[in-house]
Computed example of a mutant assay.
Amino acid sequence: MTAADVETVFRAEYGRAVAVLVRLLGDIDLAEEAVQDAFTTALERWPRSGVPPSPAGWIITTARNRAIDRLRRETTRDGRQAQAALLHASDAPPEEGPVRDERLRLIFTCCHPALAVPARVALTLRLLGGLSTAQIARAFLVPEPTMAQRLVRAKAKIRDARIPYRVPRDADLPDRLAAVLAVVYLIFNQGFEGESGLCEEAVRLGRLLAELMPDEPEVSGLLALMLLVESRRAARQDEHGTLVPLPEQDRGRWDRSLIAEGRTLVRRCLRRGRPGPYQIQAAIQAVHSDAPGPAHTDWGQILRLYDQLMAVAPSPVVALNRAVAVAETEGPAPALTLVDSLDLDGYRVLHAVRADLLRRLGRTDEAVRAYERAVELSESPAERAYLTRRRLEIAPSP
Score class of each variant (00 low, 15 high):
331 G>I: 10
240 H>Q: 15
218 E>R: 06
14 Y>C: 07
68 I>Q: 09
186 L>F: 04
242 T>E: 15
154 A>H: 13
27 D>P: 08
394 I>A: 05
247 P>G: 08
181 L>R: 07
179 A>G: 04
390 R>L: 14
82 A>D: 10
306 Y>A: 00
389 R>F: 11
328 E>F: 04
293 G>S: 10
97 G>M: 01
166 R>C: 10
142 V>S: 02
176 R>T: 11
56 A>V: 08
246 L>F: 15
36 Q>Y: 10
338 L>I: 09
371 Y>P: 12
271 R>H: 08
355 A>S: 04
297 T>D: 03
55 P>G: 01
180 V>Y: 05
261 E>W: 11
31 A>S: 11
331 G>K: 00
241 G>M: 07
79 G>I: 07
42 A>P: 03
133 T>Y: 09
293 G>Y: 05
68 I>W: 00
215 D>G: 14
227 L>C: 07
383 E>P: 00
204 R>M: 02
233 R>T: 14
397 S>K: 14
65 N>M: 03
289 S>N: 15
375 V>N: 02
233 R>E: 12
44 E>Q: 13
97 G>C: 00
279 Q>N: 14
141 L>Y: 13
370 A>C: 04
318 V>F: 03
305 L>S: 01
141 L>H: 14
319 A>V: 01
54 S>V: 00
191 G>F: 08
231 S>T: 09
40 T>Y: 06
106 L>Y: 05
333 A>M: 05
231 S>W: 02
120 R>S: 14
141 L>T: 14
13 E>K: 12
272 R>S: 05
333 A>P: 05
232 R>F: 02
317 V>A: 01
260 A>M: 02
124 T>F: 08
107 I>P: 06
216 E>V: 10
